[in-house]
Simulated assay, not measured.
Amino acid sequence: MSMIERMRPRPGLRVLVTAGASGIGAAITRAFLEAGASVLICDIDADALAAFAGEHPAVTTLRADVSSEAEVDALLDAAAERLGGLDVLVNNAGIAGPTGAIDEIPLEEIRRTLDVDLMGQFLVLRRAAPLLRQSEAGAIINISSVAGRLGYGLRTPYSAAKWGIVGLTASLAKEMGPDGIRVNAILPGVVRGARIEGVIRDRAEASGVSYAAMEAQYLANISLRRMVEPEDVAGMALFLCSPAGANISGQAISVCGNLETI
């Protein structure tokens, strides 16, 4: 096998991507489809699922909220039935959560952020693990954030969840390594798209500055002075599931242009 071939995932991988109908999840899904994988995606947005499936007929879709144990159970049952098993799990689902001081954020918003961003990954993992143990190329990619290695004022629920994902990843890599399953986290930075636009807008309002000023502040904190594209994160996901990534496990890998602070 040439080095170029080693950089590509083998065709036929059975892949589950949570929140795969838009943003980073959609970019990862497209990348795996292009690599010849069979892909099942879930999303909480039924309209987004329908639109994505219309553009990519090969994908299998199911509406699911990863914070619901019953819906996650149905999702993994669908993976076993429709894909015939599972080789790769991309734990991508998450929400931005609230922006505000710790004593001003409603408790229900804190709980919702932790339920989706952290507990949702646990719920998917506990059901995916038996399927992945039956694979000859088992890999888990948990999507965290640079907020999982840097403190993030006014975004404490989100940052706490993303730090939790890094700890979950490191621990699970030790637990599942003897089964031949690699577990890594990708930590995206400021990723171009609707979500970061909303985050910048909310933070600008909370800080009493304009959107343009807050956007400039975000870019100034990135060494490369540019946002990450969703396809940059997708490229890392493909690499981690390729033969070239066969001995990478337990890592939290930033794709952020070297975000210095947030």
Results as ranks from 00 to 15, higher is better:
Leu168Trp: 10
Ile248Cys: 00
Leu238Thr: 01
Ile248His: 01
Ala213Glu: 14
Leu125Phe: 15
Leu187Lys: 00
Ala161Trp: 09
Ser145Leu: 09
Ala161Cys: 10
Val183Ser: 03
Phe122Cys: 03
Val209His: 11
Leu131Thr: 02
Leu125His: 11
Asp115Glu: 15
Gly177Thr: 00
Ile141Gly: 00
Ser210Arg: 14
Phe122Glu: 00
Ala212Pro: 01
Leu114Cys: 04
Ile165Leu: 12
Ala220Gly: 12
Gly198Asn: 15
Gly138Thr: 01
Gly189Pro: 02
Ala206Arg: 13
Val124Asp: 01
Glu205Phe: 06
Arg127Leu: 09
Gln121Leu: 15
Val191Phe: 08
Glu205Asn: 11
Arg182Thr: 00
Gly250Phe: 03
Met227Ser: 13
Pro130Leu: 11
Arg225Cys: 05
Pro188Leu: 09
Pro230Ile: 02
Leu172Ala: 04
Leu114Arg: 05
Met176Cys: 07
Asp117Tyr: 10
Val209Ala: 11
Arg201Trp: 12
Glu229Lys: 12
Tyr152Val: 02
Val233Pro: 04
Phe122Asn: 00
Tyr218Phe: 15
Ser207Thr: 14
Ala128Arg: 04
Gly189Arg: 08
Arg201Asn: 12
Ile196Ala: 07
Gly138Pro: 01
Ile181Asn: 02
Tyr158Lys: 01
Arg201Cys: 08
Leu219Ala: 06
Val191Ile: 11
Gln217Glu: 12
Gly250Pro: 02
Ala194Met: 06
Ala147Gly: 05
Ser135Met: 09
Asn221Thr: 14
Ser135Thr: 08
Ala173Phe: 09
Gly151Asp: 08
